[in-house]
């Protein structure tokens, strides 16, 4: 390595420095740094091997591995979707069954209630019929009793009228001395009793 050194006299002297490790190691590093290939420039073998391995990988993936994997995935996804659809179908079927059952149940219930209503109606009718019959019977009985009572009352009145007439006839005979006409007495008694009953 050559260096310029200014001597005491002011001359510029070129000195060759050959001191120990300085020259050797320094020059070695500079050569390694400057003469070595640029760290950015691609290295041929790395490019070729990288390209080769990538292309082989790509071809293997494109031709064999990916289609197989994808087929499996699609098959499973389709299976899952089918399972879902099946489940949906089953659910809808179950729902229709349930609604059918509910409809049948409602029908049966309606029928039962109709029957109950009908039975209740017939029962009511029978009861009212029987009640009417009983009422009628009671009414006839009451009418008969009423008739009996009025007949008895009439009979009693007749007896009373006869008794009053005989009493009146006797008192008149005693008072007047001659027996009055029975027809007249009876008529008068009848008249008095009727007015008395009326008043």
């Amino acid at each position: 390595m050559r260096v310029h050194v200014t001597t005491l006299q002011g001359d510029l002297v070129e000195v060759r420095v050959s001191s120990e490790e300085e020259t050797t190691s320094g020059e070695a590093t500079t050569t390694a740094e400057t003469t070595g290939p640029n760290p950015i420039s691609p290295e041929g073998k790395e490019l070729i091997w990288g390209a080769g391995s990538f292309l082989v990988f790509l071809v293997i993936m494109r031709v064999f591995l990916f289609p197989k994997l994808k087929k499996g995935m699609d098959a499973r996804y389709n299976g899952i979707r089918e399972d879902f659809e099946q489940a949906d179908a089953t659910r809808t079927a179950a729902k229709t069954d349930v609604s059918k059952y509910e409809a049948a149940l409602a029908e049966v219930r309606a029928e039962a209630s109709a029957r109950v209503d009908k039975a209740r109606q017939t029962l009511d009718e029978e009861r009212s019929a029987k009640i009417a019959e009983a009422n009628a019977r009671i009414a006839t009985k009451r009418a008969a009793a009423d008739a009996e009572i009025s007949a008895a009352r009439l009979a009693v009145r007749d007896q009373v009228a006869a008794a009053v007439a005989s009493v009146t006839e006797r008192t008149t005979q005693l008072a007047v001395g001659k027996s009055p006409d029975a027809g007249v007495v009876q008529k008068a008694v009848q008249q008095v009793m009727q007015t008395g009953a009326r008043s």
Binding site: E43, K45, E46, W49, G50, S53, F54, V56, F57, I60, M61, F64, L65, F66, K68, L69, K71, G72, M73, A75, R76, G79
Partner: peptide
């Protein structure tokens, strides 16, 4: 060199991963 080996191994590991994956039962 080392970089080349890494590149080859990357392709190889990827291949093996997808090979093993595609061999398994898809169901």
């Amino acid at each position: 060199n080392k970089v080349v080996i890494i590149a080859i191994l990357s392709a190889l590991i990827g291949t093996v991963l997808f090979l093993v994956a595609s061999m398994k039962d898809a169901r």
